[in-house]
Simulated scan of single mutants.
Amino acid sequence: MMADKVTSLQVAQRAGVSQSAVSRVFTPGASVSKKTAAKVRDAAKDLGYRPNVLARAMVKGKSRIIGLVVAYLENFFYPETLEKLSNALQEQGYHVLVFMTKQTAQNVDGVMEEILDYQVDGIVMASVAMSSDIAMRCQQAGVPIVLFNRSQDIDGITSVTSDNYAGGRKIAEFLLAGGHERIAYIAGWEGASTQRDREAGFRMALQEAGRDIFSRAVGEFNSDKARDAARRMFDVAPDQRPDAVFVANDHMAFAVMDVIRHDLGLRVPEDVSLVGYDDVPPAAWRGYDLTTMRQRANTMVEETVDVLMEHIQSPETACPRRVAIDGPLVVRSSARIPTGWPSNKSTR
């Protein structure tokens, strides 16, 4: 026979505090002294008491839950960044529910329906697309959304990204300064704003110098597809082969470098200069030593949490924003270094 469920009143009596004090101890973000919290938690442990967080949330109309939607975790950028994001939200007194989905808007919409059933207080979408219909539904439900490392042309939606356009420009300027004649590009997923903006900035800087992309392939932010793209691009006659390539993220750039060096026997950077984007930890490993654009993950996380809290706490006055955070080009040995350009230092 099951024992009667322990109540917060019993915990209060055991701890010698008020019932409201017990409630505050188990309410994230509530003010309570360390001494009171210790007494309440000790009494709760002795009695086997567990608060019904969801029931309290339904009464108060706030779940203290943030839905975090993620498309894929193969890219080193995401596990580390999402850990920082989850920790930052927890410091604000919120629990995080992670939902996995595919990158397309159709797949995301199904997941979003499920998220709304959890009565979440806000949603962070990391590198995934969404439809304007589901965005409107969230707005009608009073659930703010922040797009992380992605932007979309949907009214009322806030996004936080690096300045991908400026990053693409910096990479083109660096390769041009290095004297390269045949500069190529391996694109990410064509539906991503990050891909679109990086390529747009890259192309513009080349055009301003009277140049164009020598050859282009698509890797879709996928290692296997990036390898195939590299073989098609570089397994050709020397005069048809690029002497430099910008790969739209580091995750693909590692695969491309492996093909160039190990499958095709070319030298990096003597035969081919290679630049990536993100500056994930393996980029600094001696085996890759990849020149790459750094995304300021800590700053992106801080901006995301700040703007999300603003929308949750002051929905009447909060305005949608598009935050683009500039980052430095980190120069290592995978690309020819222009004369006078500092090596192994973050620039600009």
Results as ranks from 00 to 15, higher is better:
R41Y: 01
V128E: 04
R203K: 11
A253C: 10
S215N: 04
G122C: 08
V143E: 11
M233R: 02
V69P: 03
G67K: 05
D278T: 06
M125V: 09
L47R: 05
R227L: 02
I337D: 04
A244F: 00
D153N: 11
V236E: 03
G201R: 11
A237K: 13
P144G: 06
L97P: 04
R322C: 14
S215R: 10
D121L: 05
W341L: 04
D243T: 05
V111R: 13
V128R: 09
T304I: 12
K225N: 09
V120C: 06
S215Q: 07
S334N: 04
F26D: 09
A284W: 00
K60F: 02
L264N: 03
T101L: 13
L175S: 02
I123G: 05
L329I: 10
V280R: 02
M136Y: 05
P328K: 14
P242A: 00
S131V: 08
N164M: 04
T158Y: 08
S20A: 15
N164D: 15
E310M: 11
P79H: 15
G168R: 05
R294L: 12
Q119R: 15
G210K: 11
Q106C: 02
A88V: 04
Y78T: 06
E91C: 10
N222P: 00
M293G: 00
L54N: 07
A244Y: 01
L329D: 01
V22K: 03
K39E: 02
P328G: 10
L329A: 07
K5T: 12
D306M: 12
T299L: 15
R14Q: 10
Y165F: 11
V256N: 08
R14K: 12
T104V: 13
K60P: 00
V53G: 05
W189I: 06
A192D: 07
V331Y: 01
V146S: 07
D46V: 14
K39M: 11
A255N: 06
I145C: 07
A244L: 02
E181A: 12
Y49L: 09
D289T: 01
T7D: 12
M136H: 09
M100F: 13
A192F: 15
A21S: 14
K60M: 13
D235P: 00
S343L: 11
D306G: 08
A38C: 05
A57I: 09
R211W: 02
I312S: 13
V108A: 14
I213G: 03
V301G: 11
Q10A: 12
E74H: 13
E173P: 00
S343M: 11
I186E: 04
M293C: 05
C138V: 03
V98G: 08
I115P: 09
T317K: 14
Q195I: 00
Q13K: 14
I312M: 15
D212T: 14
Y277C: 09
R203L: 04
V331M: 03
V25A: 07
Q19P: 01
M2H: 11
Q295C: 10
A126E: 07
N52Q: 09
D235C: 00
P320D: 13
S23A: 14
K39F: 02
L73A: 13
Y49G: 08
K34R: 14
P282F: 00
M136W: 06
R182C: 00
